[in-house]
Every structure is written in structure tokens, then in C-alpha cells.
């Protein structure tokens, strides 16, 4: 074995130099646990300071809030792991919600058809506008989804005449408030189910492995024979479909198809993904990280509201947290 090549990561020869990412398993585990510690600290601080924070109603509100943003953040996680970004999700929430509302005005269509319609329009919006332009035309995802954000919101206003669509059928309106076993609200159940499926997909599917490889380097993926374009179209379509689902749940909850629905959701979803530790550079991260990010954002939002902190202060705080998360991302993975 004299000619064998041995790994000795404790020696300089075995440790490549530079600012490239060299995160050990230990530090990875530690950083993830730090986030859980942060969640516990935030929870305890608001439990001690914010009135009614620990009430059942409030905790349900937190969970409900998490579920809508969380469904979007699951899709966003795969987009960011693939090296992209999707700024259009907030507008897609409105667009898909509007479509669902149009369908749900007719009582014959109940609940299922509006859901299929919303998920379908979300998937189509994610695939055609975002996925195809980014993969086929090789356009910058930031620019493409910034454009589609504006287009989808505009289409929503045109379709509704800038007025919310009311008079939705009763089955549709009661859908999001229905509790399975009188305990588990439908949106929460759907969110948990999606998280479970997404986690299994992330760990076990060949397609998921390709998402990570494409996010790490599109060139490496291409030369390895991975269908890069198909992978990119898949992640944007998935993001659109999940956003459509979030849109229909939100529309059912608020009781109308509103073109202003989902404003700023893209920021919350992206923030949740980044704060959790998924790298903006792509190729690294996961659903379990996004869950911690969602929890941190939701707890802070809720706690500050209960403490009567003005909403614009909440936005400033969220922005600061994103900046810290991005700085941590640069520190861990060495990008700018």
C-alpha cells in the first residue's frame, strides 16, 4: 500500500487552502443546534415578556402562520439549493388565489377543483415564465423572477379589476378552518405532510441529488451528463405548485381572492431558507434547516406583535436578521 493515497485531514497537505468551504461535520451539527438554541431562547423571552404568548389560541396562530409561509419556503428551499431564487412567489400566491376564487364562486365546484386550479396555475407560472426562461435562455433568476413578480401581480389586478372576489362557496370557505380530529387544522396538516414528503425526497431521490449537484456547479452537472435544464424547470415548477397550494389555503382563510394577497411573502420565504442555513450559493442546505428558519421568523413576528411593536419595526428586524444570515452564509461558504 506504499502507493496509496491517504486522507489525513489534520495535515496541511490534506487540507486545501483558500476561502472555499471546509465545514466539518462537527461544526455543521453545532451550527444547526445553535439555531435550535436560538429558537428556545426566543420562545422563552416572549413567553416571559409577551402577554398571551403561551395561550393556545396564540400558539395555534403561530402554527397557522408557519404553515402558509412554510409551504412556500419548502419549494423555495429546492430553488435556492439549485442555485436559483424565486421572487415571484408572493405574486403567485395572489394569482393562484384569484383563480381559485373565480372557480369557488360556483358552489358546484366545492373545494377540490379550486385547489387543482390554483396548484395548476402556480405550477404553470413557475414552469413557463421562471423555469423555461432561466434554463433555456440562461437568464439571471433574480431578473426573471423580479419580472414575473411584477407580471403576475399585474395580471391579478387586471383579472379582478383591483377588487377582491367575494361570495365563495361555503365548502371552500370552511376548508381551511376545518380541523382533523377537532385538533389539527387542514393547513397545518398539509404543511406537515409536505415537509415529510420533501424531506424524504431530499434524502432519497436521484432527482434531489441532481438538484444539489446543479446548485453546486451547473458546469460540473452538465459535464457529468445531468439534465441541468430539466432540473431547473423542475425546481421552479415545484416552487410554483407549492405556492399555488399556499395561495388557495390563504384565499380560503381570508374568504376572498385578493390581488394584494401574499405581498412580501417572497421575503419571508427566502429569509426562512437563508436563516435556516441553506446557502445562497446553492448546493447546500435542506428542509430541516428551513424549518428552523421558519420557526425563528414566525416566533419573532408573533412575539413582537404581542408586545405591540409597530409592524415597520418588525420589518426592520427581519431585514437585520436576513443580513446576519447572509453574513453567516458568506462566513461559512465564502461567497459574495
Amino acid at each position: 500500500m506504499s502507493d496509496s493515497i491517504k486522507v489525513n485531514r489534520s495535515t496541511a497537505a490534506g487540507r486545501p487552502s483558500g476561502r472555499r468551504h471546509r465545514q466539518s461535520t462537527l461544526s455543521r451539527v453545532a451550527s444547526q443546534n445553535v439555531l435550535w438554541l436560538v429558537i428556545v431562547v426566543i420562545f422563552l423571552v416572549f413567553a416571559l415578556t409577551a402577554p398571551n404568548f403561551l395561550s393556545i389560541t396564540n400558539l395555534f396562530n403561530i402554527v397557522l402562520h408557519i404553515s402558509i409561509i412554510g409551504i412556500i419556503a419548502v419549494g423555495m428551499t429546492f430553488v435556492i439549493i439549485a442555485g436559483g431564487i424565486d421572487l415571484s412567489v408572493g405574486s403567485m400566491v395572489a394569482l393562484s388565489g384569484i383563480l381559485a376564487a373565480f372557480i369557488a364562486r360556483d358552489s358546484r365546484y366545492g373545494t377540490i377543483l379550486p385547489i387543482i386550479g390554483a396548484v395548476g396555475v402556480g405550477a404553470l407560472a413557475g414552469c413557463v415564465m421562471n423555469g423555461l426562461l432561466i434554463s433555456e435562455q440562461k437568464l439571471n433568476p433574480f431578473i426573471v423572477t423580479l419580472a414575473s413578480m411584477s407580471i403576475y401581480r399585474g395580471v391579478g389586478f387586471v383579472l379582478t379589476g383591483a377588487k377582491p372576489i367575494y361570495n365563495l362557496n361555503d365548502a371552500f370557505l370552511s376548508f381551511s378552518t376545518y380541523k382533523i380530529g377537532s385538533v389539527l387544522p387542514i393547513p397545518v396538516a398539509i404543511f406537515l405532510f409536505i415537509v415529510l414528503i420533501a424531506y424524504l425526497f431530499q434524502r432519497s431521490f436521484v432527482l434531489s441529488r441532481h438538484v444539489y449537484i446543479v446548485g453546486g456547479s451547473q458546469e460540473v452537472a452538465y459535464f457529468a451528463g445531468i439534465p441541468v435544464k430539466r432540473v431547473l424547470i423542475f425546481v421552479y415548477t415545484l416552487s410554483g405548485a407549492l405556492t399555488g397550494l399556499a395561495g388557495v389555503l390563504l384565499t380560503s382563510r381570508v374568504g376572498s381572492g385578493d390581488p394584494n394577497l401574499g405581498l412580501g411573502y417572497e421575503l419571508s420565504a427566502i429569509a426562512a431558507v437563508i436563516i435556516g442555513g441553506t446557502s445562497l450559493k446553492g448546493g447546500r442546505g435542506g428542509i430541516e434547516k428551513t424549518i428552523t428558519g421558519i420557526l425563528i421568523i414566525a416566533l419573532i413576528d408573533n412575539g413582537l406583535s404581542l408586545l405591540n411593536v409597530f409592524s415597520y419595526w418588525q420589518e426592520i428586524i427581519q431585514g437585520v436578521i436576513i443580513l446576519i444570515a447572509v453574513q453567516l452564509d458568506i462566513w461559512r461558504y465564502g461567497i459574495r
Binding site: R20, H21, V206, R209, H210, Y212, I213, G215, G216, S217, E219, V220, A221, F223, A224, G225, I226, G283, R284
Partner: peptide, 18 residues
């Protein structure tokens, strides 16, 4: 461009042909 940095050794031996 031979290897995917963010994937482990078996993943790179079977890169694109998992």
C-alpha cells in the same frame, strides 16, 4: 470540473449515473 465539491466520494464516483 470533474467533481461535485458538495457531494461525498461515492456520490462523485457515480456522478450523473447514480
Amino acid at each position: 470540473l470533474a467533481l461535485a465539491d458538495n457531494i461525498n466520494i461515492p456520490g462523485n464516483v457515480f456522478l450523473g449515473r447514480e
